[in-house]
Design a protein around this nucleic acid. Sequence first.
DNA 1: TTTAGGG
DNA 2: CCCTAAA
Length: 669
Amino acid sequence: METLVEEVRVNGESQAEGAPLGNDSSSTSQEQISDPVVYKLVRVEGDGRLVPATDDELMEVENMLEDDKSELHITDDLKHPERCVSVEESSSKKTDLVGLEDVPQSEDTDASERKMNARLEYIEVMLQKVKHEERLRLACESPDQSSKYANMDEQSLRQHDHLPVNDEEFVSEKSSQEIAPPILRGSEDSKAKLNDTEKFQEFADDITAGGSSVTQNSTSSKPDCSTSSDMICIDNLSIRELQETFKATFGRETSAKDKLWLKRRIIMGLTNSCNVPQTTFMVKRKYLLENNVGGTHSGSENSKSEVGCMPTAETNNTEYANELDSPAKLSNHREDQQVAFGMTLRKPKEPYNVKSEDIHLEQVKRARKPTRRYIEELSEAETKEFSGSMIPYIRNSGHGQASPKSRVQPVQHVGSEGRVFVTRQDSLGGSGVKIPRVSRVRRGRPRQNFMALLNYHPSDTDAKLVERAHNVHFSQHDSESGKKSWENRELALKLPQLDVADTGEEKGSQEESDFEMDHALEPSKCDTSGENSDDNIDSVPTTKVGTRRKHHRAWTLSEVVKLVEGVSRYGAGRWSEIKKVSFAPYAYRTSVDLKDKWRNLLRASLLPSSPDKGGSISRKPATMSIPAPILIRVRELAQMQGQSGCDRSSIKFSNRGLRSVHETRSGFL
DNA sequence: TTTAGGG
DNA sequence: CCCTAAA
């Protein structure tokens, strides 16, 4: 562990010093490989915005890092043990918790809930403990680091300069830096390459999120999907409206009557696509409020005291929301956020790193994308896309730390599924995929069946449980980095379930518990692997029963958004590019499909002069409407690209220009 | 092989 | 979505 930590530090240092990216090319040393991870240097403005750090600030950070490094060694040894213990405990608890979830909900929901609560409370206590430790540690630290932790690496900045030259390269490099935690890099050599696409996606997401506070310099000319109207809407919508929205978002109808539930789903759906950060925020906040009213929430208080640097609690929340918004960038973004929050970069980090090494690993792994071939293999095997999702399960055996708990019994599913699993393991390199016992949980968006389930258990309790869970998340986030490990663990544990669920296919769907389902969504929200999770809805929502056409997959909103993003980035016509980058996880969705969809979108955006008001809600259920903002954007893109009549080259060029801008921006994230 | 367009 | 011509 220590070693890892050290590495991290080192990496960070090198970054700060501005180690040139170029060197990574030939040199094989770990350092170089690992160099990518960088905490972007940013400054938190009073209003909560993130601002790129100045050179001076960078220098400061550098110094700080230096200091830390030396400090760390000492501290690590001493403090480590305890932390580890606590973490382990917590993790185990977590596992248990997960176990609870699996219990058939139908009957003993109450019991489960009770247990859950107990667990949660326990967790909270643990969190508190951790936090406390953190605080102590902080006390010793220099208080002012807060405002400048940033971490924009010079490299990124430099890269911007030559972005135009080779976008892909840039992206991959950049992204890899951003995403992969140093630790991983150090330990796992070749990881850097693996997730180019993934990272790219992340980028894309970031870009998409343009309007959000996350992207500070955003001068985005793009229409901001997250309009105030949306915010209002989502909160004030009637159940019916919500249902409509739901349909628009997920491509299937819902009979759910639970407003909260609906809202959450919708937001998640939108969020997954990285749009509507504002909306999310609103809702989240509200959500948070609700939680506060009803339940235990050590989180809020903690966050305040803990994060003194933060402008306001609200800001904190906002950040959090944003973070949630883009699942794709969650992993690294989180780190950035820590920095931004002013949670002591190094101190908290240290514990964080130490304790959650495996977590890091998991994250990274999560981030890893399966190779194309792998994906295809899977799809062939009938596993629809679970792609990146499975990756999370892999653990680096090298770090035996991986919580044993997460390892669950092998799936007992029969037939093809079993085969699938085997395949996965193999392709994964036999690192041993841990498949949580949830063999038949479905992950991703709810499918039709799911709805039925909900109806049966019109879950108030369900909602509560979820809320609880959320609460935990919040507190973790708000309070401190140390807690992150918690969440990460939790995610790690949960995600697998989801992923597996997909494999599990429809069979077990009926047996799924609401609770599980609900949780299933969460991961997608937080899923680091980014996008893959949420969109990997293999269940093709046949909106209407029996409408299942041969290779027809209803386009989900998130997919559409991805498509739009892709087009905006690469330009319409470069479908293969878009396919590769944005739809890698989706074995289906060929470039042709993308093209067709785009054509449809175009038509949709042009013909019905956007009569649909209230955002995504459309009057006609039959016409699953695409949210207006998206259509608008489509139109704009169309204008920009196609209609302008510019010849291809010029178009491309312009795109490139735009792209570079985006990337530049995202670079500051 | 990818893109564009018609069916 | 599928198929096919063209690049």
